[in-house]
Design a protein around this nucleic acid. Structure first.
Lengths: 153, 153
DNA sequence: CTAAATAGGACTAAACTAGTCCTCTTTAAA
DNA sequence: TTTAAAGAGGACTAGTTTAGTCCTATTTAG
C-alpha cells in the first residue's frame, strides 16, 4: 500500500486542468466535463482545495475556481495535506500519539525520520513538475549514498 | 495520510525484537510478551513475514522464528511488501490499471515517478537502520537540487 | 504418544473512504 | 428587484478495507 487516496489523485487531475487552462475561472461543471470526474466529486474536491487556499473561488454566475498561485508554488505535499490530511507514515508520527506499545517500541524515531524525508520530498515537487510528462526522475539519498533511480519491478 | 498500515508498523517492532534478540529462535508468544502486541496479531504477522522469507520458522516444541538474513539485508520496502502489499502511491501506478479517466489524465507519469523514488528510498533503508535510534536522517534530491531535511511542522 | 509450536485460512467488527445530496449564501445580469 | 448560476458547508450512506480473533491441521521434540 503506502498510497494516497483516490480523491487526492483526482485532485491533482483537477488542478492540472486549472493549471493548463490558465485563462482564468473554470466552474466545477467545466472541470468535471473536461476531466471525466463526476460533478459532485469535483465540487467536493474544489471546495477542499479552496479551503486550503490552493485555489480561489468566485461565487455567482460566471463564477468558478482558479489556482491561487503559480503552479510552481503548489507542492504535492500541499495537495495531499488539503485532501488527505497531514502526511504521517505511521499513526505515532502524527502528533496525537496514543500508542499502546510505546514502552516497548524500538523503532519509533526511524519511521519518523523516513516520514520527514518523504514529506520533504513531496514539498519539493510542484504542480508544475507533476504536469511535465517527462522530466528528471527524483533522486534520493540515504545516509550519504547517492541512489540512482530505476524502475525495479 | 500517505501512511503504512498499523500492521506494518507492528511488523517492524516484531522484527526489531528478533534482530535485537539475535540469539536465535523466539516463539510468537515470547515476541508478544516482549513487544506488548497481542499474541494472535504477532502470530499473524510472523506468518506473513515467514511467507515472504523475511523470517524463517521452526515447528514443534522449542520452535519459533528468527530473521532469515542479516538485519542489514532486510529493507523497509521488504517489510511493507510482505505486510501491506506492493508499494504504489496511486491505484493506477499498480499494474492492473483500470482507471476511468485515463483518457483525460495528465498527471499519471508524475505520481509514478514519485512512487519509484519513494520505493527506491525504502529499498535502501534496512532494518538495521531502523533500529539505530539515532543516525543520519535520510536526504532526498529532486530535479538535481539537494535538499536538507528538517522537521518542518 | 503427547504437547508445544507453526500453517493456513475463515470470519467479524470497526473504521475509513468515496461519493451523493440537500440547503444556504453570494452575485451578475435582466 | 428579481432570478438563476454558481460556490459553501455539511449530513448522510454504501462500500471497501483493515485489524484482530479464532479454529483446525500439521509438524516435531521429548
Amino acid at each position: 500500500m503506502l498510497r494516497i487516496s483516490r480523491l487526492t489523485d483526482y485532485g491533482t487531475v483537477v488542478l492540472a486542468h486549472l493549471a493548463r487552462d490558465h485563462a482564468g475561472l473554470a466552474s466545477a461543471a467545466e472541470v468535471a466535463a473536461a476531466t471525466g470526474i463526476a460533478l459532485p466529486t469535483v465540487s467536493k474536491l474544489l471546495k477542499s482545495l479552496a479551503k486550503a487556499e490552493i485555489v480561489t473561488s468566485t461565487r455567482g454566475p460566471h463564477g468558478g475556481y482558479q489556482l491561487a498561485r503559480d503552479a510552481r508554488s503548489i507542492s504535492a505535499a500541499d495537495v495531499i495535506d488539503a485532501l488527505d490530511g497531514p502526511v504521517s507514515i505511521t499513526e505515532c508520527s502524527a502528533s496525537d500519539s496514543n500508542c499502546d506499545i510505546e514502552a516497548h517500541c524500538h523503532v519509533g524515531s526511524a519511521w519518523q525520520r523516513i516520514n520527514v524525508a518523504i514529506r520533504r520530498a513531496l514539498d519539493e515537487i510542484s504542480l508544475a513538475d507533476l504536469l511535465r510528462a517527462t522530466g528528471p526522475v527524483p533522486r534520493f539519498e540515504f545516509a550519504g549514498l547517492p541512489i540512482t533511480v530505476e524502475v525495479k519491478r
